[in-house]
Write a protein that binds this DNA or RNA. Structure first.
Lengths: 345, 345
DNA sequence: CTGAAAGCGCTAACAC
DNA sequence: GTGTTAGCGCTTTCAG
């Protein structure tokens, strides 16, 4: 047995047909469970296929078949090693596999160039449809792909172009709810740490923050708002800046899971983690094991993935219903860090 | 623009050839950067391809081409939503993409039936090779696939059959090292929590534990060993059992990341997390944020993924070197929980 | 330098 | 019921 080269030629329908003494078309019918083959011939074909170890070549079949299906979906996310992305992939995968569909994946790192390249690689493999997390900024590459007719569903962020389904969550509403919770405990100085403002989710969450302040009758203090933070280190520094203010915040809202980690780190370092309230967007593993346990807004990732998969599969099947923008509710999970009242100095 | 049905026919090389006034073969040469086309014809083809928005159909090309390459890899892991698996996928993906190769994924949940099914789905799409985490127990399906000539690399666990590359880590050696560290601090009763013994990694780590005890001159106490634990809840219960012994352990070694979490939970509940030492196999996000920070053995996941990808890509290229069983060193990360000395009662 | 003919493995559309 | 012919989009082979 060779490791690779001299890879054995896979048996074809011709080989099976020859052994069974029928035509390739008859083999095709048997393999695809199509009617019009006698029980005896069916049996001979089955036996021949089995002895040869025949396995249909899906790529050849999809080339010829009229529907052109490859039974393969493209999934293009920001970073598949991020727990949010990988949980989403898993949900998509499960739903797809139950329809015999496999998933071709890629991570575009929120880089438009990379996204365009990966889109092309997926397209050249003729996937039946794509589930994509749009990069921040321009969605040109996506729009072009969509306009070529590729069935597409966006997740996490909606399209900026027409006629394309999406599945998102209640970014604005849930953030507002969190801010209102903090306000109801008596917090009047609530800091906000946000991701890149080019991202739709960041904008939504920031809007929710503003709405929450307004509903609570609090005025926005610009010095308590830090945005365009990339990653935990930036959040760590931003938190330090906020805490060094003459009038520091008594509560923090972090608009993304990595930012929550950074903020926590600084709070711990300063031994303020039991004195300053913290609510974060996006749950993360072990949030319940920290001290204090971290109150978060949890997206229903399995539902988002399942919904996206169901949408794309339906579109591939030819579903012509009007565009769908599904919004899956997120949930505020109270664990402790969000329930800390304002502390006297 | 329709959502799906009536999907536009993609332009073909024939279309491009017609527009450029050349034969399809000339188009093929230009698209594939093959020599033997004049600069003028090349330009005409390029222009035609651009105006039509032509994109090569890789599935048709791979069907006809002599090397049969689909530039696609199959990746079959236990659970892509597990941080270990997804980090591995990401590493594989990055290395593959730099060679223009995409990855078709699947999660088999360590279920032999599912693994067999997914292997068949991958094979019917004629992936060039597979990177697989073998399920515990029999590797029949894998071996059969391998014997058909499919290039294959196993990760995390080695093959039980011949002639197949693998990439694993220093399970035994690193565990031994951890146990020796605990012993050097004066611990004489070191508990062991292990995953299913059917898994090769579990066996290796248990062997390392035994070696560590032996090297330290400690005798094995069977009542301190709990194996075949599936998931954090089982570990939680097992830890409670150990702590209830007349002579409870003063240190614990947990042989898998989920088990570490379970053990920690019980230690916290009993307020023993600062009194009983703990070292876990596999790092996990936030291990450094807990109190105390958790000492772990960290696998070099990016190196494992990259190595596996490089191996499979080389085999696909026809590399005939002898079988490789790469072992990537793991690292003991001291963070605090593993450095707690034995406490007087 | 370029193209015509054949065919990869399979299925559509018809014939028998 | 079953087979024949043609052709999916591309590349091989070989002829000019």
């Amino acid at each position: 047995m060779d490791q690779a080269a001299g890879r054995r030629r896979e048996p074809t329908m011709r080989d099976v047909a020859a052994l069974a003494g029928v035509s390739t078309k008859t083999v095709s019918r048997v393999i695809n469970d199509q009617p019009g083959v006698g029980p005896e011939a069916t049996e001979r074909v089955r036996a021949a296929a089995h002895t040869l170890g025949f396995r249909p070549n899906l790529t050849a079949s999809s080339l010829r078949r009229s529907d052109r299906r490859s039974a393969t979906l493209g999934v293009l996310f920001e970073d598949l090693s991020n727990p949010f992305d990988s949980a989403l992939l898993r949900a998509v995968e499960d739903r797809a596999r139950s329809s015999g569909v496999l998933v071709l994946t890629g991570s575009d790192e929120d880089d438009p160039r990379l996204q365009r390249e990966l889109l092309a690689l997926l397209a050249s493999r003729r996937v039946d449809g794509m589930i994509v997390m749009a990069v921040g900024g321009h969605q040109d590459a996506l729009q072009q792909e969509r306009e070529r007719g590729t069935p597409m569903v966006l997740v996490d962020r909606p399209p900026t172009f027409a006629n394309t389904d999406s599945v998102t969550t209640t970014n604005r509403e849930s953030t507002r709810e969190a801010v209102l919770l903090l306000a109801s405990l008596g917090h009047r100085r609530i800091g906000f740490l946000g991701d890149r403002q080019a991202l739709w989710t960041s904008q939504q969450r920031y809007t929710g923050y503003l709405e929450g302040l307004a509903h609570a009758g609090l005025t926005l203090r610009e010095d308590l708002v830090m945005t365009d933070l990339r990653g935990p280190d930036a959040a760590e520094a931003a938190t330090a800046t906020l805490l060094d203010l003459a009038q520091p915040p008594t509560a923090l809202f972090t608009a993304q899971n990595l930012l929550t980690l950074g903020a926590m780190r600084t709070l711990r370092d300063r031994r303020l983690h039991h004195r300053i309230a913290l609510i974060g967007f996006d749950d993360f593993p072990l949030a319940d094991m920290l001290e204090p346990s971290v109150t978060v807004i949890r997206q229903d990732v399995p539902a988002i993935g399942r919904t996206a998969a169901e949408l794309i599969l339906a579109r591939i099947e030819g579903d012509q219903a009007p565009v769908v923008h599904a919004v899956i509710p997120a949930l505020l999970i109270s664990r402790g860090s969000g329930e800390i009242p304002p502390q006297p100095d």
